[in-house]
Amino acid sequence: MTGFADFVAARGTALLRTAYLTCGSVHEAEDVLQAALEKACRNWSRIDDRDPEPYVRRIIVNTVISRARRRAILRIIPTGSPPDRPAPADDVVLRHVLMDGLRALPPRQRAVIVLRYWEDLTESQTAEILGCSTGTVKSQTAKAMARLRTLLGEEVSSAGT
């Protein structure tokens, strides 16, 4: 299955990064990516002739949302842990505030932000991946951005005091 191996070599890291940003944990991102790729591998003969990346990305994002929802039922919500490597010195506060804010968003809002501003997908592409309307994408984006702006404002004012 050469095509599959080539696809993983070319796009695996980008997909891993999307998975990480969506779920907030390196370990879970690797696990979700592997599960998504396994599904793609099993159906490779059917998806090989079109671009498989949107298919795999869709599995990743929806798997992360479903797992988060299931954990919410069990009331064991991952708070996400920062990566165990040192952050670069520049923009360190802003980056940490934004990433903490991203991790604190509800799963679907987090996914919307990652797909819109990390993957640079349009509202309709994002809606297609999440299986919702573009109106929902717009409202979820607005809510998430408002929350992040509030967080950023609080951080700035607390840093100023």
Binding site: G12, P83, D91, M99, L102
Partner: peptide
């Protein structure tokens, strides 16, 4: 904010590799 978010996400995932 959109630009800052993208920059933060890029920096956060720069070391991640399969």
């Amino acid at each position: 904010l959109e630009h800052d978010l993208k920059a933060a996400m890029t920096a956060e995932t720069a070391d991640l590799m399969i």
